[in-house]
Design a protein around this nucleic acid. Structure first.
Length: 268
DNA sequence: AAAACAGTCAACCGCCGAGAT
DNA sequence: CATCTCGGCGGTTGACTGTTT
């Protein structure tokens, strides 16, 4: 569908609508988004605020991505839809440059039929949808609370960790000093200290990514640890616990973990 | 060639929650 | 506390395009 046809069709086009389109863009550029009713009034547009907002969000925003949905984006859509259902705006937040409307349309045209195969025998479909929506809203709130709690715990643990590391460093340095000054005295066997030194050394030996990952995914008992199957298992348990809160289908594949960050982002 | 059908997508509609009054 | 306004969301519509018969 060409621009000329579309704009003509919906009343945004023709020659004078061309600069009206520019007007809306210019107005938003100067005054920012929001207050859509006054945008419509002050910019002299024939549309109401709602319509202006819609026009901006779905079509005029400069950061919109044009062109076909890529296979990568498609897989994200599929995955997030399996997770969240028809929460298009939430899904759209994980796809920069794509609008909820675009994703919704894409889903309807590409996947709706496949899911429609099962007979639709619910006469009170709208009531059920509303109930589901409410449940999802409650679940989202619960999830947000959990995440906030988790974030708070992480920050506290990081702080604690930082203090411990500084303390360990001092101990290590003083031990080194002592060793240098008094050669060859046998160090007493202190298992806990050895363990801390070993931990510090192994942490320093990991890559930067691993260190960041260790900080981002603290293990359940609060320790920061490097790579290893135990750690990843614990992280999975932790995140799975959160996901299970609103896991509608409960059958996501292993690739789901890849999207943990993007999945969490919209709720932040 | 043209009618019928399917697909696409911007826009509209109605509902809801949040904040202001 | 009740009402109003606004912004955001998801469902739906309808005009147009592309494909098939």
């Amino acid at each position: 569908m060409s621009w000329a046809l579309m704009t003509g069709q919906f009343g945004w086009g023709s020659i004078d609508e061309g600069w009206r389109k520019g007007l809306l863009i210019e107005y938003v550029r100067v005054h920012g988004e929001g207050r859509w009713n006054s945008v419509a009034r002050l910019a002299g547009l024939r549309r109401n605020g709602k319509s202006c907002r819609l026009r901006w969000v779905n079509y005029l925003r400069p950061d919109l991505k044009r062109g076909q949905i890529t296979p990568d984006e498609e897989s994200i859509i599929l995955e997030l839809h399996a997770r969240w259902g028809n929460r298009w705006s939430t899904i759209a937040r994980s796809l920069p440059g794509r609008t909820d409307n675009e994703i919704k349309n894409y889903w309807r045209t590409h996947f709706k039929k496949k899911t429609k195969l099962s007979p639709d025998n619910n006469s009170d479909h709208k009531t059920k949808a509303r109930l589901l929506k409410r449940q999802q809203f409650q679940q989202q709130q619960l999830l947000q609370q959990q995440q906030q709690l988790l974030l708070q715990q992480q920050q506290e643990e990081e702080q604690e960790e930082l203090q411990l590391n500084q303390f360990d460093m001092k101990r290590i340095m003083s031990l080194l000093d002592e060793t240098a000054q008094k050669p060859a005295p046998e160090l007493p066997y202190v298992p806990q200290l050895r363990q801390e030194v070993a931990t510090a050394v192994s942490y320093l030996n990991t890559t930067e990514e691993q260190q960041q990952a260790a900080l981002f995914y603290p293990t359940i008992d609060g320790n920061v640890s490097g790579s290893g199957s135990d750690t990843s298992n614990e992280v999975e348990v932790l995140w799975d616990g959160l996901w299970n809160l609103d896991d509608i289908n409960g059958n996501l594949g292993a690739t789901s973990k890849v999207w943990l960050h993007s999945l969490a982002t919209p709720l932040c």
